Amino acid sequence: MTAAQADLARARNEFTPDTPPPAVVIDTPQVEDGAAIWRIARDSEVLDLNSSYSYLLWCRDFAATSLVARGAGGEPVAFVTGYIRPERPGTLVVWQIAVDHGHRGRGLAATLLDALTTRLAGQGVHTVETTVTPDNTASDRLFTSFAERRGASLDREVLFDGGLFPEGTHQPEVLYRIQPIGPRAHVGAGDGDGTAG
């Protein structure tokens, strides 16, 4: 194990959803955070980047089902966006999760996911859905670990075949359905941290 790997393992073991990394505050996004969230998504280099306008709207219209992690200066350093499915009010769809490159390895993605689902479980949410492309190992690890921490089942099925996308090169979007989401457990080593969605 290299020194960097040891630092990463230590960081993942030190931080849990109850104790976010030092100088990081978990908060509801504000419209003013939209540009920073867009930049974090863009710089991830793996998320489908939406228009900057859509991130502003997300911070306005879906703030209750999204979170940001703020750094020491109050700027967003990570985010999770989601929405409640209109026809299934007990289901949270996690749209995107991303962590700024300089804040990875601290368990922030898992912390945000746990904080959001804990908050919404009190409002009747019992199922989490997201889609993951087959090449996104960070997302797979993050959501598999989340299901294990919650003692929940994780079912996978192709939701949108790659051929449905206009560019013709998009990988299939695999639906991950995690249910029921019970009480949270602590984030530990091996939990994904980086970019998901």
Score class of each variant (00 low, 15 high):
A3G: 05
A4D: 07
A4G: 03
A4Y: 10
A9F: 09
R10T: 09
A11K: 05
N13S: 09
N13C: 10
T16M: 08
T19W: 06
P20M: 03
P22T: 08
V24T: 03
T28R: 04
P29N: 04
V31Y: 13
D33F: 03
A36E: 06
W38F: 15
A41K: 02
A41S: 07
E45T: 15
N50D: 15
N50W: 05
S51G: 15
Y53K: 12
S54W: 03
Y55I: 07
L56H: 10
L57N: 15
F62V: 13
A72P: 12
G74T: 10
E75N: 13
P86V: 11
E87C: 13
P89F: 07
P89V: 08
T91N: 05
V93L: 13
I97F: 00
H101E: 01
R104M: 00
G105Q: 02
T111E: 00
L113A: 06
A115S: 10
A115R: 08
L120H: 04
A121R: 03
H126L: 09
H126Y: 11
H126I: 03
T127Y: 14
T127L: 11
V132I: 08
T133L: 08
P134Y: 01
N136T: 05
T137G: 04
A138T: 10
S139V: 06
S145C: 15
F146E: 11
F146H: 12
G151S: 12
S153F: 15
S153E: 12
V158W: 06
F160G: 14
F165L: 10
E167T: 14
Q171M: 11
Q171E: 08
P172R: 08
Y176V: 07
Q179F: 11
I181C: 02
G182I: 01
R184C: 09
A185E: 04
A185L: 02
V187K: 01
G188D: 06
A189Y: 13
G190K: 01
D193E: 02
A196T: 02
G197Q: 00
